[in-house]
Nucleic acid binder design. Sequence first.
DNA 1: CAGACTATATATAAGTC
DNA 2: TGACTTATATATAGTCT
Lengths: 108, 108
Amino acid sequence: MVTGRSNGDENFWEIIIRLGLRKNRMGRRKLEIKRIESKSNRQMSFCKRSKGLMKKAKEFSILCDVDVAVVIISNRGRLHEFSSTNSLYVSRYGALFPDLPTIPTVVV
Amino acid sequence: MVTGRSNGDENFWEIIIRLGLRKNRMGRRKLEIKRIESKSNRQMSFCKRSKGLMKKAKEFSILCDVDVAVVIISNRGRLHEFSSTNSLYVSRYGALFPDLPTIPTVVV
DNA sequence: CAGACTATATATAAGTC
DNA sequence: TGACTTATATATAGTCT
């Protein structure tokens, strides 16, 4: 019997896998909050977490009846955004103020 | 024995409480995504969720190495914000552009 | 009003296909 | 690239202090 704890314990999984009960360790792992080095993992995480963040922002705005905006600039310079209502408007800086310097700026 | 399911089943809790095993139903409940009518609950939720959102935004920016900004305008008009780096700047609209109309605007 | 407390609802890391 | 899977890490609703 593989002893009790199975809470994220890598030992547990090593044994499970060696026994052939599973091919791989499954389930969410704990993650240190620092830049994810693996590019593919970082990319995957970006995809999931950006969706998650937007979703949470949307829920939050509805549940609590407040205006929320989320702005994400991916490292390829792409803009992703969520705005709960039209009382918050999101736009490329340069698009609205072509004459002003293009420091990314959030104005509320 | 109070039969199996305890997953959010209100029946389960009615019985538990009637038996005096607990004073109240505990644990997170499911919540419909619509404006929370109870003012105090809404307020409480605002507090918890705004913190949660900011935290997630921060984690996200670190893990995925991207710039993120979150802007919240509470219904009392208060501004709450998070910005991962100084490449995103958050400010009251009127403060930067005193001559322009004061439509809340997020410019990136 | 701001935390502590629990049980549960949700978000998600890696793998697989 | 993206959709599924599964176990686990996290976020939180409602109560109480």
